[in-house]
Design a binder for these strands. Structure first.
Lengths: 109, 109
DNA sequence: GGACTAAATAACCACATGGTCATATAGTTG
DNA sequence: CAACTATATGACCATGTGGTTATTTAGTCC
């Protein structure tokens, strides 16, 4: 795995980042951010999640650098930090498609 | 994200798979399997985890097709299903390295 | 069959965390 | 400064799940 030595500490750091993506609500927020910057209120409206809830998810995603943000007046604007999330999701989706071919999972289509 | 439509159901399927990697114990098992097939007992010994614990992690990883297995006499031999796990981990590790450069995380080296 | 071994499962506890409600904080506008 | 708005935070509850112990199941060897 990369050049990093897989000590228990590193394992925990990596795991924590996977866990961050292991939540539908956060994936939904991230996929919403794919089309550009959004305020928290917009994310609340689009996702249908509660405001406090979205705020907490964004804090986590920001702590782990999945998103970046800037303040503009009263608003806080969030955006994706990079494209890694979608690289990762594409791999997972590739797995799903493969499983679908095997008839193990049903993708809605 | 890929060609799959991101319905709530798909989001949950993807999230579940990220969650599977969001556990140091499972990452440890997977990284142990990188050097080839291992029995459950071997994995127990190498990882230092309990037998029931390893068995449960392996069941999850097998359900999600991260690992495959075959029976040989009394033993059950597990192996990686493919290289996806390491593609995924490499991306995450890349992020860690980048964060390390920013002085946000300390990698033990 | 009976004794033994490897792995899986069940029952259980403890802890982490997602969601919500209420409140605090930061910033704007009058 | 007071009223208002957007976001963050704290407290709390409910649920999910990782770990352990004990037991069951599957297979081997005598």
């Amino acid at each position: 795995m990369s050049t990093i030595e897989m000590t228990p500490e590193v394992l925990e750091l990596v795991a924590k980042r996977f866990r961050a993506l292991g939540e539908p609500a956060r994936l939904l927020i991230l996929s919403t951010l794919r089309d550009g910057e959004h305020t928290v209120s917009e994310l609340v409206e689009v996702t249908g999640l509660g405001q406090a809830n979205v705020s907490k998810h964004l804090r986590l995603l920001h702590d782990l650098r999945f998103v970046e943000r800037r303040k503009e007046g009263l608003y806080m604007l969030y955006r994706l930090a990079d494209e890694d999330v979608f690289t990762l999701c594409d791999v997972m989706c590739g797995r799903l498609e493969q499983e679908a071919e095997w008839g193990r999972v049903v993708l809605g289509r």
